[in-house]
Design a binder for these strands. Structure first.
Length: 473
RNA sequence: GCCCCCUUCGUCUAAUGGUCAGGACGUCAGGUUUUCAACCUGAAAACAGGAGUUCAAUUCUCCUAGGGGGUACCA
């Protein structure tokens, strides 16, 4: 009878939900779904100086946007400090921990000395056996865990394999600060135990912590969860992911116009694979995901691949949904409010009708909206002097000269252009000689390249295309 | 410094004690397309280096180099 899997995602709210955290959350979520278990969420806010309410909201928002749901209410670690303290006292009572009266300066000196001697820098255990009566007055003690000094601590990691640490390299870590607040390694152990976590899936920057935590589990007589330490994600240059690269919050990816499904698909393939499968549905991911297939080396973040994937998902997304997402995205643009006003209901309708032509050439929602700018541009268009001169003379021949200018000068074949103008005249019910004005109104100059076809898309692309083909032949 | 982890095309990765080392993104060249995009076809592109084990190593072992993580009264 196998226990039901319970994973957890445990971010510390000191910033946004970054891309590495998002992948960790995804892996936890996938593993929980795959095994029919649960994923819990724990906010590790014990660093009160760095934790912020805004960061908590950003993380919850990010998870929701990525559609990674968690079970139950989030657990706030800070609220459990009393319980952590209780366990620290228990350890103290059992002689598995002790009070340490060393000052910050003494600790500093200790580290330097150890380093100079080529030993692992760490607490030397001075207060392990020393009589508390010798404690200097006025110093509040911290409580240190009495780590084993001999032998080794072994972690059977589902990703990293068997990792062995010599106990002599692991010092007596502080579990309760002199101000009475618990430290990370204690809180994590107690919370994971109390929350009945069966699988800890996290970044491999926690590998050493896993060893220390294992020691604490043992001292407490608790079973350790199954560990899986996944490699970190690096920037395009191979260095640690920083703000300079892709270490943006997921909300930045949303703002750049990526779809959650695309981001999930991209992220899951970073460090994990299932044969040659590249594009996979969430259901497939859940079905195929497993910890053993996670690689052991760090992966670099590659925007080009994300873009490609996003374009793929964009093309598969229903038009109406794209419009909905665009509407939701608009407020995040610097000129969002103004743009929203300019578009209006009519604009959204036009946009949805033009969608088939628009979405197949955009890689992101932002690009898509950008290329649709002609639909909502202010009229009349801004034209340069030469274009105006040409317009003034009107007539079909002139239009032929004008259009390429509007287009950013693609090379139109005369007969195709003629057909286009003809089509446009028909569609709009104008006489051939009077097409310039309305066409000018339909096009929008400024940004990007509107593309005559996009105008036709509004009218009904398929039909227009067919007519042009007929006429050109 | 010390401890731990990693190393297959530019990038993400697959596979294997004997393979033409596979796929995807990107790149390049064609095709299709009135532009762009998409799409189709094709091409270039990798086992970090050195020992050892073996009839045979990309695959197993060791060393070196390089990269990464940790080394707090941060998480």
């Amino acid at each position: 009878m196998s226990e039901k899997v319970i994973t957890r995602f445990a971010p510390s709210p000191t910033g946004y939900l970054h891309i590495g955290g998002a992948r960790t959350a995804l892996f936890n979520w996938l593993y929980a779904k795959h095994t029919g278990g649960k994923m819990l969420l724990r906010i590790e806010d014990t660093d009160q100086a760095r934790s912020t309410e805004g960061a908590i909201l950003a993380i919850l928002d990010g998870l929701r946007w990525l559609e990674l749901d968690w079970d139950g209410e989030p657990v706030y670690q800070l609220a459990r400090a009393e319980r952590h303290r209780e366990i620290a006292e228990q350890l103290l009572a059992k002689g598995k921990a002790y009070r340490c009266y060393a000052t910050a300066e003494e600790l500093q000196a200790m580290r330097e000395k150890a380093r100079a001697e080529g030993r692992a820098p760490g607490y030397d255990g001075t207060w392990r056996h020393r009589d508390p009566l010798e404690a200097p007055p006025g110093i509040e003690p911290a409580i240190r865990f009495k780590a084993p000094r001999e032998g080794e601590t072994v972690i059977e990691d589902r990703v990293q394999g068997r990792v062995v640490f010599a106990n002599k390299d692991l010092d007596d870590l502080v579990i309760l600060r002199s101000d009475g607040s618990p430290t990370y390694n204690l809180s994590v152990v107690v919370d994971d135990h109390d929350m009945a976590i069966t699988n800890v899936i996290r970044g491999d920057d926690h590998l050493t912590n896993a060893a220390r935590q294992t020691q604490i589990y043992k001292a407490l007589g608790w079973d350790t969860p199954v560990f899986a330490h996944v490699p970190l994600i690096h920037g395009p240059d191979g260095a640690k992911l920083s703000k300079r690269h892709g270490a943006l919050g997921v909300e930045a990816y949303r703002a750049m116009g990526y779809l959650p499904a695309a981001l999930r698909n991209y992220l899951v393939r970073l460090g994990w694979s299932h044969g040659d499968a590249e594009v996979m549905s969430t259901d497939e991911m859940v079905q195929w995901f497993d910890l053993e297939a996670i690689g052991r080396s760090a992966a670099r973040f590659d925007f080009a691949k994300l873009e490609n994937l996003n374009g793929h998902y964009l093309r598969e997304t229903p038009d109406a949904e794209i419009v909905t997402r665009l509407k939701a995205l608009l407020p995040e643009f610097p000129n969002g409010a103004a743009l929203a006003e300019r578009i209006g209901d009519e604009g959204w309708r036009k946009l949805e009708r033009a969608m088939p032509g628009l979405k197949e050439r955009a890689k992101t929602l932002v690009e898509l909206l950008d290329s649709a700018a002609y639909l909502f541009a202010a009229r009349p268009l801004e034209l340069d002097e030469q274009a105006k001169k040409l317009l003034d003379t009107t007539g079909r021949g002139t239009l032929t000269a004008l259009l390429p200018r509007l287009e950013g000068a693609p090379s139109w074949k005369p007969e195709a252009l003629d057909a286009l103008v003809r089509t446009f005249a028909e569609e709009t019910g104008r006489k051939l000689g009077k097409v310039a004005q309305p066409l000018r109104a339909a096009l929008t100059g400024k940004s990007t390249s509107p593309g005559i076809f996009d105008v036709l898309d509004v009218l009904g692309r398929e039909e227009s295309l067919a007519r042009i083909r007929d006429q050109v032949q």
